[in-house]
Computed example of a mutant assay.
Amino acid sequence: MSPVAMSLEELIPSNHMKSNIYSVLIRTSLVLSTLVVALSIPFFGLVTSLIGSSMAMLALILPCVCFLSILKGKITRFQVSVCVLIIVVGTVSSVIGTYTSLLEIVQQLL
Rank of each mutant, 00 (worst) to 15 (best):
N20Q: 10
M17F: 11
V80D: 04
V4K: 11
A59L: 13
G73Y: 00
V47C: 00
L46P: 00
A5H: 04
A59Q: 12
P13K: 06
V24H: 12
Y99T: 07
P3V: 04
I96P: 01
K18C: 02
N15K: 11
M1W: 07
S23F: 02
L110W: 11
Q107L: 14
I70V: 09
S2A: 13
T48Y: 01
M55G: 10
Q108L: 10
K74E: 08
P42R: 12
G90N: 09
L110V: 09
L71W: 03
R27A: 10
I61K: 12
M57L: 12
K18D: 09
S69H: 09
I70R: 04
C66F: 10
L11I: 06
L85Y: 13
L46G: 03
L50F: 06
F67S: 07
V84S: 14
S53I: 00
L50D: 01
F78S: 13
E104N: 11
L110Q: 13
S33Y: 06
A59S: 09
L8K: 05
V65Y: 10
R27K: 15
T48D: 00
M6K: 12
M57S: 07
A56G: 09
M57H: 07
F78V: 13
C64W: 05
L58I: 14
M17W: 11
V36E: 04
I12Q: 05
K74T: 04
I21S: 08
F44M: 09
V36M: 07
G97P: 02
G73C: 02
I61N: 14
H16A: 14
E10Y: 00
V106L: 09
F78P: 02
S2C: 07
L35G: 09
V24S: 11
G97T: 01
F44I: 06
S33R: 06
I96T: 02
V106K: 06
L62V: 15
S33M: 13
G97C: 00
F43D: 09
L39T: 08
V88F: 12
V106T: 05
S29H: 12
M55D: 06
F78R: 15
I96G: 00
